[in-house]
Amino acid sequence: MAQQTRQRAEKMRPSGANEGTGSAAPASGRPPVRSAPPRSGPARTGASRTSYAAIDLGTNNCRLLIAKPSADGFVVVDAFSRIVRLGEGLAATGALSDAAMDRAVAALSVCAEKLRARQVTLARSVATEACRRASNGAAFIERVKRETGIALDIISAQEEARLAVLGCHALLEPGDGPALIFDIGGGSTELVLVDSTGPSPRIIDWLSMPWGVVSLTECEAAPEDSHVDVRAAAYARMRARVADAIAPFAERVPPDADQPRLLGTSGTVTTLASVHLDLPKYNRQLIDGLIVPTGSMRAISQRLSLLTLDERRALPSIGPDRADLVVAGCAILEGILDIWPAPRLGIADRGIREGILRCLMDQRL
């Protein structure tokens, strides 16, 4: 099964991107992330020499993409990603900690250097749930501007959902009826019901629930040395919290019984897809665009929920950076599958950054 599924993975051609990231210019198969036609000719003069950048500072990660327009979308010329855990401790204190802010500023300083080195012409930098929720979020934004020169925009949950959809909707399986796209973040999870029949997705309904892998872990994770029964109980509590938060959305958007389509973009789904393929290390070319049976994703989620922290760390597809957070991601994923029982799950290793780049290149921001 894993070999058959590998063959369905979208083949991508990176262009100068760091290992672990890739280009949005596929060799064949699924449609690329495309830019709409320019509004006027002069605006695209010298477009091949223009570099655009997108920074996404989330609750758990800091990510950067720098790209140039191409005939079939855009080509990534540089990329950066670092786990910073900006939202660590936020659920308990309501504020960003000094250590978390220091980690984020260090990562953003790397981004600033890359922006200068690549002579970026136009960029947009956004911050999401951690900064939305923190009492000192605005002060942190000011510090980032002062120390790195990067002007972060704290975007709304609705804008976050819109950008994620723009960045990954090209990977939706063809079909009729609405589709569900979701993004499991560090501090929140966005679910978006879309009509994908037109050239661009139309958002029908959406939900931002206040549970992501960091916030849910901090509330319900089992102690590291706990008995398997304790771990199982903690996972059940996680799933119950997700079910409560997702219930209003589930009542509004019953799935299409004929062909429910589902696409996920987040570290959770890409990590679980890596486990599904039994990869010795993460490979974006095999993951981005992959279609996985949801039964397999459920089985992996339930198995991981019962492993100890050390056992999860020992899995090469997970490793030490995600081992403590992946169980919460599994609980959120299962909650989504409960309300949208699609037979398959599309996996996207793209999202907000790609959505920003699309908008910048289309002159929509």
Rank of each mutant, 00 (worst) to 15 (best):
N61E: 09
M297C: 13
S296A: 15
A36R: 01
R124H: 12
I203C: 05
A323N: 02
N61R: 03
T5S: 15
G335Q: 13
L108R: 13
P42F: 11
Y52M: 06
R103F: 12
P69L: 03
A221M: 03
T265S: 11
S156R: 05
E129Q: 10
S188P: 01
I356Y: 06
A273Q: 02
S135L: 13
L277F: 02
A99V: 15
P31W: 05
G329Y: 10
L306R: 15
N283E: 13
L333P: 08
R303H: 14
R133P: 03
P178S: 03
E129V: 14
G355I: 01
V230Y: 04
L122A: 10
G167E: 07
S81L: 06
A95Q: 14
S305F: 08
L90C: 04
S274A: 02
L307E: 12
T271D: 04
A43T: 12
L57Y: 05
E142Y: 05
G212Y: 02
T5H: 15
D244I: 12
G73D: 07
P343M: 07
A107S: 04
S51R: 14
L307H: 12
L96M: 00
S70I: 10
A130P: 06
A27L: 15
G58I: 04
H227K: 08
V192W: 04
K145A: 15
A179E: 04
A257F: 06
G329L: 05
E173Q: 11
R284E: 01
R133I: 13
A232E: 01
G73W: 02
R85W: 02
R313P: 06
E251M: 11
V275K: 01
L315R: 07
G87R: 02
G177T: 00
L286R: 03
D310G: 14
V120L: 07
F249T: 10
G58K: 05
V253R: 11
R298Q: 15
L64S: 01
T21N: 11
P293H: 01
I291C: 13
G46R: 02
T59S: 03
I291V: 14
G355P: 07
I300H: 03
S196E: 09
A91R: 14
G89Q: 08
S23M: 09
E10W: 14
G137V: 09
A240R: 07
S51A: 13
N283V: 13
P293K: 04
S301H: 11
L315N: 14
T50P: 06
E160P: 00
P42T: 04
W211T: 03
S215I: 03
